[in-house]
Design a protein around this nucleic acid. Structure first.
Lengths: 144, 144
DNA sequence: CGTTTTGTCTGCTCGCAGCGGAATTCCGCG
DNA sequence: CGCGGAATTCCGCTGCGAGCAGACAAAACG
């Protein structure tokens, strides 16, 4: 496969996962964590989209991919939807099941993040892809 | 700061975190999870090294950086050493405290992973850096 | 040398990872 | 169109790890 880093069409706004109530109490002296940039998605959201895109590129079902990764299809579904935060071992297993290296997977995540918020001086992502990606995570931020 | 993706000198072999005994039972019909490539490090290890490198580049202590991130210094130490798997919110907070975007952080992780296992066709990392990185994660793989 | 600062170790709690059964949605077929 | 099977999502559960704070060790400083 190896076609990583492709920009990913996105789905719905996510249920949130752990956001520890105790974390972030001291961040900037106002009881707030250091603010993450507006509209910047969370790692697990982008990772999940990347994994689903890779699986669908292979034309596979949750059951097929999860079987090779040694995890339950229900859990893979939740990871792909950004609902659960997988461990590094799980990430490695899923990458292996999809025949991509961790490098390729991580680069794919970075490319998707860049599409949402292009860094100065980097090659511009296509307009429609940027708009699509920005719309998805932008909506998330606004909903939050 | 923004100087991400620099190759990172590494430390000791890690205590491991959760590796669910139930995960991976069905991976390849032999009760094994799909094998991750030999000597490929785990995401949390490389992330931790990246965070520590960034903090040290700023000339900061655990207490300073963790204070801005809104987390405990003991916890930041464990994350940097690859002992704990932080949530996406924690990762975002730490990135913010270090003045890097998630893109930059992720690219830095990808670069470090590539140094361990250069992909075909990419620019070769320096020999000593590659040897250093490979030695660190290679030892881990052998110990495992 | 003593003191301070920095980083690591350790035990704790509480909330979630990862699971599996059930429910819902999707899809191909007649 | 309805139907059956496949695929995906929902939901509740439990074991265990995230994240913490006190204690300890190591390093730095005067």
């Amino acid at each position: 496969m190896g076609e990583t880093g492709a920009l990913i069409p996105f789905g719905t706004v996510r249920a949130s996962v752990r956001t520890s109530a105790r974390a972030g109490q001291a961040a900037n002296g106002r009881g707030e964590r250091a603010a993450r940039p507006a509209a910047e998605p969370l790692w697990r959201e982008v990772l999940g989209d990347q994994l689903r895109a890779l699986r669908r590129e292979r034309g596979e079902t949750l059951i097929e991919t999860s079987g090779r990764a040694g995890i339950s299809p229900q859990y893979l579904s939740e990871v792909e939807r950004g609902i659960k935060e997988p461990s590094s071992e799980m990430i490695a297993a899923m990458a292996g099941a999809l025949d991509v290296s961790l490098v390729e997977l991580t680069l794919g995540v970075a490319e998707t993040l860049r599409a949402v918020r292009p860094a100065a001086g980097t090659a511009r992502a296509s307009v429609s892809a940027s708009a699509s990606a920005a719309g998805r995570y932008g909506a998330f931020a606004l909903a939050a």
